[in-house]
Simulated assay, not measured.
Amino acid sequence: MKGGKKDQNIHKDCENPKQEGIAREEVSEEVTPSADNIYGKEDNSSNEEKDNEAELKNIMEQLEAKTKKCEEYFDMLQRTIAEFDNYKKRTIREKEALYSESVSDVIATFLPVVDNIERACQIPDTNGDNKSIKEGITLVLRQIKDILSKHGVEEIKSVGETFNPELHNAVMHVTDESAGENMVVEEFQKGYMLKDRVIRHSMVKVAN
């Protein structure tokens, strides 16, 4: 009987190592990943990288397009500002020219009155009876010229100046050895300017 129990124990001990080996192999198979799983993960990672690269490329293309559009808008804005600035300057010049032309026309119609007052002042008072009248006319003439001067109207210098066709209107030529070439020696009618605009040319006599 004792011998039989020993044989049974020995048999059980022999069976246990086999079971342990099988269990270890099963655990090893569960823990160790298969080659298919490894390659599958690598493929997924590669696909994700490709997707990220494609998305980044798409974003960069959109950014480049937006940047180009912004540059176009900025260039358009600069041109608009420049055009508006030129428009303002042109409008100011046109207004100034229109004002100058209007004032010139009014003054031109008024100049014959000034001429007549000047002629009245040049009439000699032989008896002295009209002295007070002449002084009054002279005072009026001075006031008129002061008003014209305040509005930028000036007399054109003529006598003793070199003839300038832009300022003078030569109605007579004489030979005078005492005068220089093309020199204005006499003025028949005064000319006037408004700033750089000629209202009326001086009517003059030119020597040589």
Rank of each mutant, 00 (worst) to 15 (best):
H201S: 06
V103T: 09
T80W: 08
Q19Y: 03
S28C: 09
A108Q: 12
T91Q: 15
K190Y: 03
G152Q: 01
V140Q: 04
I92W: 12
I59S: 08
P112D: 02
S132K: 14
S45R: 14
N127Q: 13
C121M: 10
E101G: 11
V204N: 00
R119F: 10
A108V: 04
Q78T: 10
D13A: 10
G3F: 04
K190C: 00
Y87G: 08
N127A: 15
M76K: 14
T126K: 12
N44S: 14
L194W: 04
V153Q: 02
M193W: 07
G160D: 01
R200P: 01
D51L: 09
E26A: 14
A179Y: 00
E71P: 04
D196Y: 05
K41R: 15
E71M: 11
K66P: 03
E101N: 13
V198L: 07
E64S: 13
H173N: 10
V185K: 00
E135I: 01
R93A: 14
T91V: 11
N130A: 11
N58Q: 10
K205I: 01
D7W: 04
F110S: 03
G191Q: 02
F163I: 00
A120Q: 02
G191T: 02
K5F: 11
H151P: 01
I133L: 15
V153P: 01
Q62C: 05
T162A: 05
S45H: 10
G4L: 13
S102P: 00
E72W: 08
V114C: 07
L56K: 11
E71W: 05
E166F: 07
D129T: 04
S178R: 06
S28M: 10
P33F: 14
F84D: 13
N47Y: 08
Q78C: 07
